[in-house]
Design a protein around this nucleic acid. Structure first.
Length: 566
RNA sequence: UUGGACGUCGGCAAGCGGUAAGCCACCGGGUUUUGAUCCCGGCAUUCGCAGGUUCGAAUCCUGCCGUCCAAGCCA
């Protein structure tokens, strides 16, 4: 009943502007009613969550319309590309939950070449022997028209000859390029005789040394789409100015079809950078531990941090798609993974900053196993046994000698509950010579076993703990934002993005964790009670040396209240 | 007078001429053996600004303002 009400009352979100365009195309009977998209990364780095948005968009549309989405490597520039990157991209796309057919732009080099010849023969392309510098000078500016190259009027025969020799490797890099002959005075600078082929005497990761010329993005991309029968070529906003060129190439060659380019706003996340150049720099300069460092906004980074594919997919769906340049708050992503892990992650106890507590009236040498539920929201998750003894550790933050108002935790003379165990009261505080608290002497109430008092007396605080004797030491890595600036586009004049690296983005703790955690398989997520969600690290965790990464902390309204009062 | 794109709550984002959805954040209140979760309630008389058209405008028109993209032989 309630569910029915929900369905009728809940307004459903309309299709995004891209799906609206597709719907219109379909209504007009275009593309035989088919929808075919593609995700076309250049293999020059690891995928980040911005790519994740694009992947979910393109594959999501294909699913919605019972169409297909290709994974295509846009490998037209051998200088920056590498097989390591294509491997990682395939892994990441599959991890996100998609299993596409894989294509390579480099497989189309022969066809591109034939189309270049077509343009030359039609008098629509020419070999320009000016230097890169001269070409730049003569291109003009947004407000000033460019001037024609002196080589613009070369004959078809001469262009063919020169282009053939370029291809044969007769010329040095930079000595000449093939250009489209369009309009040097065009308002759109991309139309001022753009480069089509440049000479690169470098080995390509797939075609080896077969080619000494490589096609430019603008020339190649529409053709790649057309060859694969793409109907909607979805890309980011900065390519808006390239669309006229995309169309021009398709219109001036015998292409099999004419895909429609649609642009959307790329994802920006607060407190991080999203450019491949910068991410590569962080890796090569050792500022992070690698592409999959849990602080990185890469898909592999999020994976190692403990994010699930479903959480990334949901994030992509909920931020939507539009043409507005926007900055999405990283806390929105955190909200989503918290919600998922709250439902699915087993609870466990871990003390990150241990303070020893001796329960003076508890029998010496005795250890008892107490039952602990794995997930209070899900009885099917079952229970586990947790060892309890005379000596335990609690969180140092959970004790204050002179507590402020409303401090519900341990303090001299105060009683609290140890989760799943007993009520204890703090009787005595032991300090070292410097006045630092080193140990607490407490007494427990045997009648409160399990955490309930038979006399009905209430206690405000419930603490997590571990048995000092049975607990296991673990390395716990606490991650925070990689950068300290919310919007990395707001850097001060003269400052570099690296000036904003957050020195506390990684804090390592020697924690004491309950013994059940040593058996945790790498990658498995837990909620460490009252702390946050942690996963066993996929790189370094083992039973002999447990390592847990904090995916995200729990909400902490006590900490928030404290901060406000300051 | 360069061209193009975009401006709806603190952050995303619906809305497409019939009188401002939703989510996050935030602020109350309740439940709770996690100060978590969960539950209940509040949160844009106004859509960059100014005019105009209309019975009626966030939606149409005009002008202005602001932001982003564009001068790679990168993608």
């Amino acid at each position: 009943m309630a569910a029915e009400n929900n369905q009728t009352e809940e307004k459903t979100k309309g299709p995004d502007f891209i799906r609206q365009i597709i719907n219109e195309d379909l209504a007009q009977g275009k593309n035989d009613g088919k929808v075919h998209t593609r995700f076309p990364p250049e293999p020059n780095g690891y995928l980040h969550i911005g790519h994740g948005k694009s992947i979910c968009l393109n594959f999501g549309i294909a699913e919605d319309y019972k169409g297909v989405c290709n994974l295509r490597f846009d490998d037209t520039n051998p200088t920056k590309e590498d097989q390591e990157y294509v491997d990682s991209i395939i892994e990441d796309v599959r991890w996100l939950g998609f299993d596409p057919e894989i294509f390579y732009a480099s497989d189309y080099f022969d066809q591109f070449y034939a189309w270049a010849l077509e343009l030359i023969d039609a008098g629509k392309a020419y070999v320009d022997s000016q230097s890169a510098d001269e070409i730049r000078q003569s291109r003009g500016t947004p407000t000033k028209p460019g001037v024609d190259s002196p080589y613009r009027t070369r004959s078809v025969e001469e262009n063919r000859d020169l282009f053939t020799r370029m291809t044969a490797g007769e010329f040095e890099e930079g000595s000449c390029i093939l250009r489209a002959k369009i309009d040097m005075a065009h308002q759109n600078m991309n139309m001022r005789d753009p480069a089509i082929y440049r000479i690169r005497k470098e080995s390509h990761h797939r075609t080896g040394d077969k080619w000494s010329i490589y096609p430019m993005y603008d020339f190649a991309h529409g053709f790649e789409d057309a060859i694969e029968g793409i109907t909607h070529s979805i890309c980011t906003l900065e390519f808006e100015n390239h669309r006229p060129l995309y169309d021009w190439f398709l219109n001036n060659v015998s292409a099999p079809c004419h895909p429609r380019q649609i642009e959307f706003a790329r994802l920006n996340l607060s407190y991080t950078v999203m450019s491949k150049r910068k991410l590569l720099e962080l890796v090569t300069e050792g500022l992070v531990a690698g592409w999959d460092d849990p602080r990185m906004p890469t898909l592999s980074g999020f994976r190692r941090r403990g994010y699930t594919p479903a959480s990334i997919r949901r994030f992509a769906r909920e931020i939507g798609v539009s043409k507005v340049n926007s900055l999405v708050d990283i806390s929105f992503l955190q909200f989503i993974i918290r919600e998922e892990l709250n439902e699915n992650a087993d609870r466990a106890m871990a003390v990150l900053d241990p303070l020893k507590v001796t329960i003076t009236n508890y029998p010496e040498g005795q250890i008892e196993e107490l039952e602990a539920e794995n997930n209070p929201g899900n009885p099917e998750a079952g229970c586990r046994m947790v060892p309890f003894g005379r000596e335990i550790y609690i969180e140092r933050d959970d004790f204050m000698e002179e507590p402020p108002r409303k401090f519900f935790r341990l303090a001299p003379g105060k009683e609290v509950r140890l989760k799943h165990a007993y009520f204890i009261t703090c009787d005595e505080v032991i300090k070292d010579n410097n006045g630092n608290v080193t140990e607490l002497l407490c007494s427990y109430d045997p009648a409160t076993k399990g955490g309930d008092s038979p006399d009905g007396r209430k206690v405000k605080g419930t603490l997590h703990w571990v048995s000092a004797e049975k607990a296991v030491e673990a390395e716990v890595r606490l991650y925070d934002n990689l950068f300290s600036l919310e919007n990395m586009d707001d850097m001060e004049e003269g400052k570099d993005y690296k000036d904003y690296l957050n020195p506390e983005s990684l804090v390592i703790r020697k924690a004491m964790v309950e013994p059940s955690l040593v058996d945790a398989p790498a990658g498995k997520s837990f909620q460490f009670l009252r702390q946050g969600y942690f996963c066993a690290d996929t790189g370094d965790h083992s039973s002999a040396h447990p390592v847990f990464n904090r995916t995200v902390a729990l909400k902490d309204s006590w900490a928030k209240m404290q901060k406000k009062n300051k």
